[in-house]
Design a protein around this nucleic acid. Sequence first.
DNA 1: CGTAACATTGATTTCTGTCAATCCGAGTGG
DNA 2: CCACTCGGATTGACAGAAATCAATGTTACG
Lengths: 241, 241
Amino acid sequence: MTRVTALFLQRRRRERLSEEEKRALEDAVAEIRVLPARHVLVHQGDTVTRSTMLIEGLMCRYMDGRDGHRQLVALHVPGDFVDLHGFPLEQLDHDVATISRSKVATFPRETLLTLTRNHPHLVRMLWFSTLLDAAMHREWIFRLGRLGAMGRVAHFFCEMKVRLSLVGLSNDNRFHLAVTQADIAEACGLTPVHVNRVLRQLRDNGQLAFQRGMAHVLDWHALKVTGEFDDAYLYVDGTPD
Amino acid sequence: MTRVTALFLQRRRRERLSEEEKRALEDAVAEIRVLPARHVLVHQGDTVTRSTMLIEGLMCRYMDGRDGHRQLVALHVPGDFVDLHGFPLEQLDHDVATISRSKVATFPRETLLTLTRNHPHLVRMLWFSTLLDAAMHREWIFRLGRLGAMGRVAHFFCEMKVRLSLVGLSNDNRFHLAVTQADIAEACGLTPVHVNRVLRQLRDNGQLAFQRGMAHVLDWHALKVTGEFDDAYLYVDGTPD
DNA sequence: CGTAACATTGATTTCTGTCAATCCGAGTGG
DNA sequence: CCACTCGGATTGACAGAAATCAATGTTACG
């Protein structure tokens, strides 16, 4: 029997979850839903009464600027909790939305509270998963603060390739990523027009081809150099699961 | 008797710590040390055997780029844990260092593990404090991705003013912040030269004066507008503005 | 087949980085 | 007490990167 939570922390460097813990987490799922593309799940300031894990699809977290421009602060792939930060914080400081059509599992806040009482070790795993988000946030800060446009886009694709690989959604050098150039722009702090030019350069350089939601890494080493990418911050587990 | 941990989560929107929890946290302090300015406390990749709370001074977390440029990912004021992320993560993905001479309290990892077993509610407060860091990371992503140079520097000073106020280090519109223009540049993803020009503009605009480590907010409202600043992400407890 | 969303391209402007010099203030030693 | 030095701050001239403005092209889909 495959569990909807099977991808949670998959292949991450961490203590193992016991069978009992896995079952407890699985049993905490109250509901499984499908959300349409471009659907806002949580609004900034909402009081959080449940947490959500992404099972299939692509979701993001973002903040709004005064001029209406959005800045993505996270992109979520299957296996990620998309709003677990709201569990200790009780309110969220940002919006959470789908990018493509997504299947999600819902964990009621009350059930999670019970879990934390009965499974202290599982709590540390949940905590760990939110700190993985924080580590990715830090890397995004680095990306935006220190890299030029080429580096930012290259770094973005490097991260997505590794994260999708971890959950079995990229085997060779291709992977599906249902984002538009405008989404990439919102993630990388650029304009869509400039993202377009950068993608062309990466293609012409023979590093990366991206079109219609399909990324093809042409030269992984070169792409990592361009994006100054090192996957240490993703806490990938060396040992097989 | 004042506790060294008295400033922890001070004036943050959260459940209260009981007297017993406060005592347990205080008792977990193994050592109090003074670190010189510009001293690296934790290196990227180090295995974390203890956690550190800043009592007095100013510290930062940063990542190194290939060309030797640093990017700050966090700035810490008294009352902050500077490396609590390392407790669940076990290793850190970034460096932690002092900016000015700092007094810190040390919590051995083992002691914290015991705490988490005996005080489940306190664990959620520690978790909360790391997610406050994550919320600040997100705001920094927004700052870098969506604001121009003026906005970034204005936003930076807005955040520091609010955070220092929370721990009693800014009463009127002045506060001491022992950073150089180069530090501000590393936090805001700019060059020191450009930070200098922006500071001059902010001074000429009558919004902010900063010299020799002393910031003077001349027009709080205007500064917040320039930095598109809203303190919601700091989870301040019952703030009058 | 028409429409809307997305992608592409070129021309131009604006902003920030780079380079290079100078200035200033605090602490130091003669 | 006064040169000296050094880190940090300041300024100006210039180059380069990315934004902006404005079309045009392409694809998916009802």
